[in-house]
């Protein structure tokens, strides 16, 4: 419900992506708790995986850093539960690869995610070999790619819930600049749409976020949000990156 409400109350949704426990658990939590004040209309949290084949260098580096510092799904879900008790409104989406989820136990994962107050799960590599979604209360967010045909779009659309996530480039996260015209042409072929659609991958500036938001119901900002924190995770840089989210929010609202 929180997801539907977010799309109703915001003209366009701003969805920052942050790798769990990056740059450290403390700073991650600090950012998480501040994001709603800076215009985030949903938050996407990445469960780090050692072999993230759809991610570019920034998300890879943030993931390795979090794994190296001892990331675990159990601890993240406990942290989200605490966050949820203070922030009852903002939707929280978990992004992961299949393996960490099935090692945690897929039934257990969806049950625990639901009880922690997670609103949706996106498994990057689920494609055609689905992990069963055991909790009807957790939205099954699916990717749509530039290579997705109208027929395949309809099949995915029929299974998905919450929203659809349009991958703006044929490529990995944070490496290429998407072309709004190409996306608009493809999106025009993908109708009718029952669910809201957000656009992500490669959104590197306020201007690009604004152009993309005009084509959809929201934008996901990941690599460009996290990249400066790889070099310096001090409070000044954290502040600067939160202001970046605020600037996007103000520009597209």
């Amino acid at each position: 419900m929180r997801i539907a409400t977010a799309f109703q109350t915001h003209k366009k949704c701003v969805i920052p992506f942050i790798t769990a426990n990056f740059p450290s658990r403390e700073v991650f939590l600090d950012i998480l708790y501040q994001l709603p004040e800076y215009g985030a209309s949903m938050i996407e949290i990445g469960i780090p995986f050692s072999d993230p084949m759809a991610d570019g260098p920034v998300i890879q580096a943030t993931s390795f850093q979090a794994i190296h510092a001892g990331f675990s799904i159990g601890e993240l879900l406990a942290d989200i539960k605490k966050f949820r008790s203070q922030q009852p409104q903002i939707p929280v989406i978990l992004m992961s690869y299949t393996n960490p989820v099935i090692q945690y136990g897929d039934t257990r994962f969806y049950t625990d995610a639901q009880s922690a107050g997670v609103d949706g799960v996106l498994l990057v590599d689920r494609a055609t070999s689905a992990v069963p979604n055991y909790s009807p209360c957790v939205a099954d967010i699916r990717l749509i790619a530039p290579t997705t045909s109208p027929d395949r779009f309809h099949a995915i659309h029929a299974q998905a819930s919450g929203f659809l996530y349009y991958v703006s480039v044929t490529g990995v996260t944070g490496t290429q600049t998407p072309d709004p015209q190409v996306i608009a042409t493809h999106l025009a072929e993908l109708t009718p749409k029952r669910l809201p659609m957000v656009i992500g991958f490669g959104i590197q500036s306020v201007a690009l976020a604004t152009a993309m938001a005009a084509l959809a119901d929201g934008v996901v900002v990941g690599s460009s949000f996290l990249k400066p924190l790889l070099a310096d995770s001090g409070s000044a840089v954290v502040q600067q990156q939160l202001q970046y989210i605020r600037a996007i929010s103000e520009s597209i609202a």
Partner: peptide, 12 residues
């Protein structure tokens, strides 16, 4: 086995 891949690769 199976096909656990990002959506982009499904058509190819």
């Amino acid at each position: 086995g199976g096909q656990y891949v990002p959506e982009t690769l499904v058509p190819v």
